[in-house]
């Protein structure tokens, strides 16, 4: 559904941009001769339409940044995305990815703070990361500032039977909600560790390589697989055995 909207936004943005460009060229060429009526159209043409376009472009950027492809396009994210497809990795991210526990946009699946509807903190953090990245003023291994929001885990797990049968969850629900206790404390590494991601470490070379690159074909095939599973649920059981 979201994919369809994003595609529509893409097309709409390009059409508006071409229309706007044509309109600007027309205004400039005919600025001496155009009527007052046309001049009145300058406002929507030069202010409203570009504003709509900027809005749509932002929406597009925020939505496409949810994909694993978008994440792995940054050099510093490679250790994280490579880990997803490492068959030996037991990190939470890898287990979620390899077991198809999250069907798509797996990075975003656990980092729901960003995206178009994301919060202000995520937006400012995203801008900071962008500026650091393009100016090359970052250091590897990159470090998560602040605290991971447990709500990202809770949104999928809290209502499940498996979560509720663990009696030690009950007395610390408040601590989960204010993040003073992290879900990761009992469920382990989400990604490769800082030492593993440090240039020069024994695992760094493998973590940073392009060998594991996830491309749109992989994602496409995964989508097809998931669609197939939806049609034939028994196949999933066979494959999981």
């Amino acid at each position: 559904m979201i994919g369809g909207i994003v595609d529509l936004v893409k097309i709409l943005s390009v059409v508006i941009f071409i229309l706007n460009l044509g309109f600007v060229v027309y205004i400039l060429k005919k600025r001496e001769t155009i009527s007052r009526r046309v001049k009145k159209a300058v406002f929507p043409g030069l202010i409203v339409l570009p504003a709509v376009m900027v809005f749509l472009a932002n929406y597009h950027v925020f939505e496409t940044s949810k994909t694993v492809e978008a994440c792995q396009s940054c050099h510093v994210m490679k250790p994280f995305t490579n880990d997803l497809v490492n068959e030996k990795s037991m990190t939470l991210a890898a287990r979620h990815y390899k077991n198809n526990w999250i069907p798509k946009d797996q990075c975003y699946g656990c980092h729901k703070d960003y995206g178009f509807n994301g919060n202000f903190k995520a937006k400012t953090d995203g801008y900071r990361h962008l500026m650091r990245y393009i100016t090359g003023t970052y250091q590897e291994p990159i470090e998560y500032k602040g605290e991971f929001n447990n709500a990202n885990c809770m949104s999928c797990h809290e209502a499940t039977e498996k979560f509720q049968e663990v009696k030690m969850h009950t007395p610390i629900m408040d601590q989960f909600h204010d993040n003073s206790v992290s879900c990761l404390n009992c469920h382990g590494r989400a990604h490769p560790t800082r030492l593993q991601r440090t240039p020069g470490s024994t695992e760094y070379k493998n973590l940073i390589s392009d060998r594991h690159r996830i491309d749109s074909e992989d994602l496409g095939s995964m989508k097809e697989y998931i669609e197939l599973i939806n049609e034939k649920p028994n196949l999933a059981k066979v494959n999981n055995q």
């Binding site: 610390i172 601590q175 003073s180 990761l184 404390n185 009992c186 469920h187 382990g188 590494r189 560790t193």
Partner: peptide
């Protein structure tokens, strides 16, 4: 805060008692 040490032998996993050390 208390967090499991991701670099240690326990790979960042601790239990409810360890969580309450603060």
């Amino acid at each position: 805060r208390i967090r499991g040490d991701l670099e240690a032998h326990n790979k960042g996993v601790i239990c409810i008692k360890g969580n309450m050390l603060a």
